Amino acid sequence: MFTAPPGYQPIYGPSVPYTGPIYGGLRAGMSLYIQGAIPHHITRFEVDLQCGEFEGCDIAFHFNPRFDGWDKVVFNTFQNGEWEEQEKIHQMPFSKGEAFEMVIAVTSEGYQVNVNGSEFYMYPHRMPLDRVSALHIAGDVTVQSINIIGGGYPGGGYPGGNLPIMGLQPIYNPPMPYSGMVPGGMSPKRTIIIKGMLPYGANRLAINFMVACSRDVAFHLNVRLQEGIVVRNSQIGGDWGQEERELSFNPFQEGQYFDISIRCGNQRFKVFVNGQHMCNFFHRVQPFTQIDLLEIEGDAQLSYIHF
Rank of each mutant, 00 (worst) to 15 (best):
P199Y: 06
Q256H: 14
H306W: 03
P21S: 13
P251S: 10
K88L: 07
R44D: 00
Q91M: 12
I229C: 08
V103I: 14
T142C: 11
G152V: 11
P6D: 04
P17G: 02
Y23M: 04
T107W: 08
N250V: 02
F54N: 01
P177H: 08
N80A: 13
M186T: 14
P174D: 02
L135A: 05
G238K: 04
Y33F: 06
E246Y: 11
I229H: 07
M166C: 09
M1L: 05
Y18W: 11
R126S: 12
P93L: 11
G150M: 11
S118M: 14
G185N: 04
Y158P: 00
T107E: 15
T77K: 00
L205Q: 03
G97Q: 11
M102K: 09
Y153Q: 04
P93S: 10
F252H: 07
H306D: 13
S261L: 14
R27F: 11
Y8R: 01
A37T: 05
N280R: 10
L163P: 01
V74I: 13
Q169G: 09
N280V: 08
A99V: 06
G7T: 06
L198S: 10
D239T: 09
N116F: 15
F100P: 07
R131V: 02
D68A: 08
K96D: 11
G110F: 00
E55K: 00
G69N: 03
M166L: 05
D48I: 00
I305C: 09
N116D: 15
G298E: 01
Q91W: 05
T43K: 09
Y172K: 03
R66H: 10
V106A: 10
P183C: 09
A37M: 09
G275P: 12
A206M: 14
